[in-house]
Design a protein around this nucleic acid. Structure first.
Length: 511
RNA sequence: CGGGGUGUAGCGCAGUUGGUAGCGUACUUGACUGGGGGUCAAGGGGUCGCAAGUUCAAGUCUUGUCACUCCGACCA
């Protein structure tokens, strides 16, 4: 059991924000971590369960967050030379059987379309599937798009001049999961999947590594979550890949979350779909492939990475609302005066690119609004009342450490710009410290079994065999989350088998 | 798919030995309020998850079923 004390950095000073959530029946992390997570998703209005089992409705606030994530990622993809395209949702069943390990990996979780028509039931039972409308070939709802894309690339690639192909698509995919959790695992989810084709192995590997860097950059600089960059062990590798690169994050309950993966696919798909090009030397060669993706699961990472017992905490660079302004007034006239001033302030904030919202609803009290935006994780809140108009001040409250102070209206846009950066930085540091505190080297099996119960990343030696990894998983539920790219060479003995090992890998229990 | 738990008003819950449903909050109206979830008063809102069964009578008992949730197996 982890202590969350380090995340409750509420100062005892006079400007401390009082804690009201006790009255609202929201769970705390220590009481029930899973319930706490579910409460945040629902009460912060990110998403809710739908009538479709295992599928969620992403609500406007949650979708706005996703849009911000999309925008930054999309920019990064384009800056690295990629273009967006769109491929079909339905994939002919036969495509799947072309790459053996790929089928095996996904077969158990595919939704299948078998018919194309409904009809009125003659026996009065409402609507039924028309048995006469059976498809010649059944269609799979994509769990990922490698097959349909490589079937397409086959037609696009003739010569080395056609390479590389650098394409990304934003799409939904379906994986029929037995056990679902909002954002972390749902039957349908939103993601992006990049699929590239290259002339050489070297170039493909470089692409996979480059995209891993992009993901790590995004995680750390936008989500404010530190990640371990590494490769997966063969057991954890993507179905059909020769190498899977990953970024791995640590959640507040001590469990790991895979935040993004990038795969070097070798020539597996090129061979399965017969994608060849004529080289400069006039020889026919199979192309080399990569694929890489991140999903709405990242929203789960943001929630579990930063939020506290008062609700959601969002990193400023991704927050749908960065500054919310709440007027405090006694009558119509005061509201008008405040609104005039706020209009001016908003203009200045927006000129700096700050996403600001003025909540002038007359239907809610200020205190209610304070609590609401706090729960929804808005990084900065302004309170402006008659006293502020007189003094030319603003009460500025920050969500990350729950403190507030008075600031002059003059030049507030510059101050806030700095403040947002400071909050972003603080969240990253806080998460980094947490990870540091919950990462340790472990050298004996006894110690491993004790430490894994406490959660966190365990750096330990591993003999490199799947059997050992499997045994460790069976006995402790821990898996190898990553073989860090920056692992230093260090002779040691496998934690489990005692066989020699040259570097430490990262073990953890995972989502 | 196996095991546990929960489904009663928008949300959170109570409901005794079976006797026809209640609390908090939210909602509506009004007044007073207003710098951290306001106060008072008066109101509105429920096929008790769904379907069968037992019974004179079912939120309550029985069976089935669906959903959610936790724990396993599977996975981003």
């Amino acid at each position: 059991m982890l202590s969350f004390a380090q995340f409750n950095v509420i100062s005892k000073k006079a400007n401390t924000i009082p804690q009201f959530n006790m009255a609202k029946n929201f769970s705390s992390r220590a009481e029930d971590y899973s319930q706490w997570y579910n409460d945040i998703v629902k009460h912060a209005e990110l998403a809710e369960n739908s009538s479709v089992r295992g599928s969620m409705v992403i609500k406007p606030y949650g979708y706005a967050l996703w849009e911000n994530m999309q925008r930054e990622l999309d920019r990064m993809f384009k800056e690295t030379g990629h273009e967006n395209a769109y491929f079909p949702l339905f994939i002919p069943k036969s495509f799947f059987s072309k790459e053996a390990s790929h089928v095996e990996g996904f077969a158990k979780e595919c939704a299948v379309v078998t018919h194309y028509r409904l009809k009125i039931d003659e026996n009065g039972g409402g609507i039924i599937v028309d048995p006469d409308a059976k498809l010649e070939e059944e269609l799979i709802v994509r769990p990922t798009s490698e097959t349909i894309i490589w079937d397409t690339y086959k037609r696009w690639v003739k010569s080395y001049r056609d390479l590389p192909i650098l394409i990304n698509q934003w799409a939904n995919v379906v994986r029929w999961e037995m056990r679902t959790r909002l954002f972390l695992r749902t039957s349908e989810f939103l993601w992006q999947e990049g699929h590239t084709a290259h002339a050489t192995e070297r170039e493909a590997i470089a692409e996979a590594e480059q995209m891993l860097e992009v993901y790590a950059d995004f995680a750390e600089n936008f989500m404010a979550i530190p990640v371990i960059k590494g490769t997966k062990s063969p057991n954890e590798r993507f179905a059909g890949a020769l190498e899977t690169y990953c970024i791995e994050a640590l959640m507040q309950d001590g469990k790991a979350l895979q935040a993004g993966t990038s795969h070097f696919l070798g020539q597996n798909f090129a061979k399965a779909f017969d994608v060849k090009y004529l080289s400069k030397e006039n020889t026919l060669e199979y192309v080399w492939a990569t694929s890489w993706g991140v999903s709405t699961r990242l929203i789960g990472a943001i929630i579990m990475g930063h939020s506290d017992d008062n609700g959601l905490v969002l990193p400023p660079r991704l927050a749908p609302i960065q500054v919310v302004i709440i007027p405090i007034y006694k009558n119509e006239q005061q509201l008008e005066e405040i609104s005039d001033e706020v209009k001016e302030i908003m203009k200045r904030l927006r000129s700096k690119g700050i996403r600001v919202k003025y909540d002038n609803r007359d239907t809610q009290k200020p205190g209610f609004k304070f609590a609401e935006y706090e729960y929804k994780g808005v990084p900065v809140r302004f309170g402006i009342g008659p006293r502020d108009l007189e003094n030319k001040t603003i009460e500025v409250a920050r969500r990350d450490n729950l403190t507030k102070e008075m600031m002059p209206m003059e030049g507030i846009e510059e101050k806030v710009l700095l403040l947002l950066d400071e909050i972003q930085q603080n969240l990253f540091e806080r998460a980094s410290n947490f990870r540091k505190k919950n990462s340790k080297n472990v050298d004996t099996w006894e110690e491993f079994k004790i430490e894994i119960e406490k959660g966190g990343f365990l750096y330990a030696h591993w003999d490199g065999s799947s059997e050992t990894e499997q045994k460790i998983k069976e006995e402790t539920k821990a898996t190898i989350r990553a073989i860090p790219l920056d692992a230093k060479e260090e002779m040691g003995k496998c934690i489990y088998s005692g066989l020699p090992s040259s570097k430490r890998v990262v073990f953890a229990r995972a989502y």
